[in-house]
């Protein structure tokens, strides 16, 4: 597959037929972009335009360029070259198989090496509190395990260079690490979200209003710090959840760690770079 170095969104019109504020917006490989705005502001349509590689032929008249050029019809039509992989809260595993067999089948379909399977399960287990075992049936995995496995699978097996994450807010996984894992594979990541942890994890965010892109905001240094703190809150919630599940009592010291200095998940970082 052709390498995707960047995508360019050329602005069209909003719901009132006026030109969008943002005339042109580039997203480079490995970048994480948030898409925020009230319900009905056109977030999903923007995603749809990117997914379909619209050429001024959708209701918004937007155009999407790949590496600065109009994408070939091969790229638009060949089902094996689907550019966008999606992750959302409503998605489930429905196949009645165990985790290992399922990953093997997926790897086989994509012509990928089978030796990645244990790595995927290991990575997924870094994102969730409850470990996934290779012989677990897919359909009995919890919400958090399911989402974690989906993220790791998209990172390693799916070749799609663009990943779209649609409101994955209450997934019960370490969101920060999940994003790091995906961007570590040099994917372009677009996150539609109402969740501050997710929105502030993005380097830039597109503000949507009345069907149009009204502004693009760079995350400020202060927001980056806040983002790390929020990520801590997130992890504490996950940890508390596990403790309650295991029949433990919660003490004050268990919440106090929210306000400690954030540490980098070194294990994860090492994995990504290998």
């Amino acid at each position: 597959m052709e390498q995707i170095r960047n995508i360019k969104i050329i602005g069209g019109i909003d719901k009132s037929g006026k030109h969008e504020n943002i005339k042109c917006f580039d997203i480079a490989q490995g970048e994480i972009i948030g898409i925020v705005g009230p319900t009905g502001s056109g977030k999903s349509q923007l995603i749809a335009d990117i997914e379909q590689l619209s050429q001024k032929d959708s209701s918004t008249r937007r155009q999407i360029l790949i590496n600065g050029e109009i994408p070939s019809s091969e790229l638009r039509n060949n089902p094996r070259q689907k550019l966008v992989a999606q992750l959302s809260q409503n998605m489930n595993f429905l196949a009645d198989m165990n985790v290992k067999d399922f990953l093997l089948l997926h790897a086989q379909c994509r012509g990928k090496s089978m030796k990645n399977i244990d790595k995927i399960i290991y990575m997924a287990n870094q994102l969730t509190g409850e470990p996934i075992k290779p012989k677990d049936n897919l359909t009995i995995l919890s919400g958090g395990q399911t989402r974690a496995l989906m993220v790791a699978d998209v990172a390693v097996i799916s070749e799609s260079p663009i990943v779209l994450i649609d409101e994955i807010e209450n997934a019960g996984i370490k969101k920060h690490e999940a994003l790091e894992l995906l961007s570590g594979y040099n994917k372009i990541i677009l996150i539609v979200t109402h969740d501050p942890v997710m929105a502030l994890s993005a380097q830039k965010r597109i503000i949507m209003k009345n069907g149009g892109m009204t502004a693009v905001i760079d995350a400020s240094p202060e927001e980056k710090t806040i983002s790390s703190q929020l990520s801590k809150v997130d992890q504490t919630m996950l940890k508390l959840r596990e403790m309650i599940r295991n029949g433990q009592h919660i003490e004050e010291k268990d919440i106090n760690q929210i306000f400690l200095k954030p540490t980098v998940n070194n294990k994860m970082a090492t994995l990504i770079h290998h």
């Binding site: 089902p79 094996r80 689907k82 992989a85 999606q86 992750l87 959302s88 409503n90 998605m91 489930n92 595993f93 429905l94 196949a95 399922f102 990953l103 089948l105 997926h106 379909c109 994509r110 399911t146 989906m150 699978d153 998209v154 097996i157 799916s158 799609s160």
Partner: peptide, 13 residues
């Protein structure tokens, strides 16, 4: 397709 995982969509395809 919005109800199943990306992996299953790719296998299905």
């Amino acid at each position: 397709g919005d109800m199943i995982s990306q992996a299953e969509r790719e296998i299905f395809r």
